[in-house]
Design a protein around this nucleic acid. Structure first.
Lengths: 131, 131
DNA sequence: TGCTAAGTTCGACTCCACTCGTACAAGTAC
DNA sequence: GTACTTGTACGAGTGGAGTCGAACTTAGCA
């Protein structure tokens, strides 16, 4: 199943309509690229767990988005929902609903345009204790 | 008065001894450059007031450090102490005691070495409502 | 029809950051 | 000495963020 419009994947608020490959579900609500605030992004990235999420997406995702479970994070689902939403609402990631799964990807183009170099810092980051 | 060692300006913990112009008071306790953590720095910079402080230091300081009052921040002194300490303990700024005054400067070299491009983002930042 | 899996929502809890007033310490100037 | 100034220390109040369990929703499948 793809693309039908439900309450869960309604069009994102404030997102410019952009041509996309057909069949993709609409992104979940997210700030428009111009509305992404540096202080909000820095706050979202100041959490080690979220920093790890974004870094893993940058380094290991093969040009497609990934589900919550792909990250192998040892936390309850309600905690993961909280962090993935924080990243999305800050404008760091984009989430799409594929059936039951909610897949995430980093908004690389938007972030590089507004804050050049920031994602490089995240990619070069090393967690406090191993990976 | 300069340079005599009191409780208030004891040598910084974990700071490598580095040749400096004589007569400078020792820096207040701060993390060594190698111990500066990205997530801590991002957390320190996620506050608009602190972002404003660092940005003003980057853009308007004429190659010397500045006192608390130079920033013209309309907050009680105890609040400013809190924020300047947060910046220093995160490794973003260095503070030195000159008599009564405590002057701050950005650790430009250390931050550019560890997180290249980060200070450029801060300098390019624009506050939510005017300057 | 019913089961299972992915993820949300809600409420509760804890903890920390921000804010500020007040009191205090330390130089500086008279 | 006294007064003034810069800034800290401490404590309290407030709000928000992180954590989690439990109940719920939805899609896919047998």
């Amino acid at each position: 199943m793809t693309g039908q419009r439900t309450e869960a994947n309604r069009p994102a608020v404030g997102v410019e309509e952009r041509p996309e490959p057909p069949g993709l579900p609409d992104p979940l609500p997210e700030p428009a690229a111009a509305d992404i605030r540096l202080e909000t992004v820095l706050g979202a990235l100041s959490d080690p767990l979220r920093l790890r999420i974004v870094r893993k997406l940058l380094l290991e995702s093969e040009e497609f988005d990934h589900t919550c479970g792909w990250f192998g994070l040892d936390r309850p689902k309600s905690s993961l929902t909280h962090h993935f939403r924080a990243l999305r609402e800050a404008g760091v990631t984009r989430q799409r609903q594929y059936g039951l799964e909610r897949r995430s990807q980093v908004r690389v183009a938007d972030l590089n345009a507004r804050f050049p170099g920031l994602l490089d810092l995240v990619a070069a980051w090393t967690p406090p204790d191993g990976d």
